[in-house]
Design a protein around this nucleic acid. Structure first.
Lengths: 249, 249
DNA sequence: GATTTTCCGTGATTGACTTTGATTATTTAT
DNA sequence: ATAAATAATCAAAGTCAATCACGGAAAATC
């Protein structure tokens, strides 16, 4: 059987059963455990399944029960990569830093790793603000209209409020990273907010797992060389020529 | 069974039952208590459930758990009275109203009774904003520093942001109501915010149960005749001479 | 055309790591 | 104070990634 063919079958099987053990797949597909494991690793890297200890689960199985996956509920996907990235990013925060934290699930993860209580934090995410407070950190929120799905503060009030601040560091999420289009996101309003935040920051960091490279979304909010990238895999050289990239792996 | 699979089932179970004991999960999933506890700890760290002594509860169980324990504790006192007051207050909201909702436990209760989706809502409470969004209402938040205990946005940024708006109605909490001192609250910063909000509102309502009458706290944020009072017991005549009071009982 | 070389996917082996349930010590609620 | 719940620790069982050798297919060489 062809490798690709087998892998497609694995994905189908997992989609159907929600969760599966390595042994189950060994029996079902008549391949060795080593091969199945390699397949699962590959499929996990392609974000087609979620590899877990003992087997794999379908990507969407976690929110099968929730009617509307909100920010907090989505945040636990792909945690291993995000943990690495967040941990490194959090270590960059120094005493007296004035830190902007962009809304989004990657940056939400970042907050769980922040330990520096001498820095000040400001965010446009409602959940982010709540979580920062839970960790006992000095927190501010940007005012403005709130976008329901992402629970992010956006709009002209938000952009104007941002223009008054001067952050020492900012941590942003992104949907796409490309040499031609720079950093991109699907929502115009969010893009405007991100752009304004970066404009008022001394050092901007983009937190992005490897799957974001080469992806282009609707709206550009920054060119590559304005932000450092923190990611989980050594990227193609053409990106490295454009900006500083830290790969944690 | 896979670890992740079991944990997903635990989340489902908790989502469905709102609360669950360790023993219940041991019986339901046929795993040892030690394992269940480890699962609960892990899920709590991922913010997928809320671990409590004896078991766990759902994170989105609207009654208790979206609120900080400190806030939640207070919110559970005098619920019956607050429900009456909130219900009446919510009925006052009309289409196209621009409504300011002050932070505090009484006003948090109010949100659960709001049904008008044609009005616009703005608040200085982080939890309030989240709750408004959950109810599918058009929501804005005021920006500024957040006071950790109450999760209320306060400070000069907040006051300045408020000064741009013109609300048709505002709903405020208070700690004390007295003929001499007017409406009072213990925190200077919160008082400034409340005062500014009232200043920019056409019709301000104070939600207060009967225990607040005759009480004086540290800082006055308004005199009596600037706001209507919504309360749960017919108050003394001396208050009625000063402002409009609606007693719901 | 036949032989060699290279490449890639596979399966087996192994030491390292993860999960689990039992036991014990500690913490918590009443 | 007491009883229950929890966290910490440990050994056993199970799982994983790395490594190696094998074998078939494609490419290079003769």
């Amino acid at each position: 059987m062809l490798t690709e063919e087998r892998r497609n079958e694995i994905v189908s099987y997992i989609e159907e059963h929600k969760a599966v053990t390595v042994q189950e797949l060994v029996d079902a597909l008549d391949a060795s455990a080593a091969t199945i494991r390699r397949d699962l690793t590959a499929l996990h890297d392609e974000h087609r399944i979620l590899k877990v200890f003992g087997g794999a689960t379908s990507i969407s199985s976690k929110d099968v029960n929730t009617i509307e996956p909100s920010v907090a509920e989505k945040a636990h996907r792909n945690t291993a990569e995000k943990d690495l990235i967040s941990e490194y990013a959090a270590s960059l925060i120094q005493d007296n830093d004035f830190v902007y934290i962009d809304s989004g699930t990657t940056t939400l993860h970042l907050i769980d790793h922040i330990t520096n209580k001498k820095a000040k934090y400001i965010t446009n995410g409602v959940v982010h603000a709540k979580r920062l407070l839970e960790r006992g950190l000095s927190t501010m929120i940007i005012g403005g209209r709130i976008k329901p799905v992402t629970e992010a503060v956006i709009g002209p009030d938000c952009v104007e409020a941002l223009s008054k601040f001067h952050f020492t560091k900012s941590f942003m999420g992104t949907n796409g990273i490309s040499v031609q289009a720079g950093f991109t996101t699907p929502d115009v309003d969010e893009a405007l907010v991100k752009a304004e935040a970066i404009k008022h920051t001394y050092l901007s960091y983009i937190l992005a797992d490897h799957s974001k490279f080469g992806v282009v979304s609707s709206v550009t909010f920054s060119n590559l060389h304005s932000c450092c990238i923190i990611t989980d895999e050594e990227p193609n050289k053409k990106y490295k020529d454009q900006t500083i990239i830290k790969a944690v792996c």
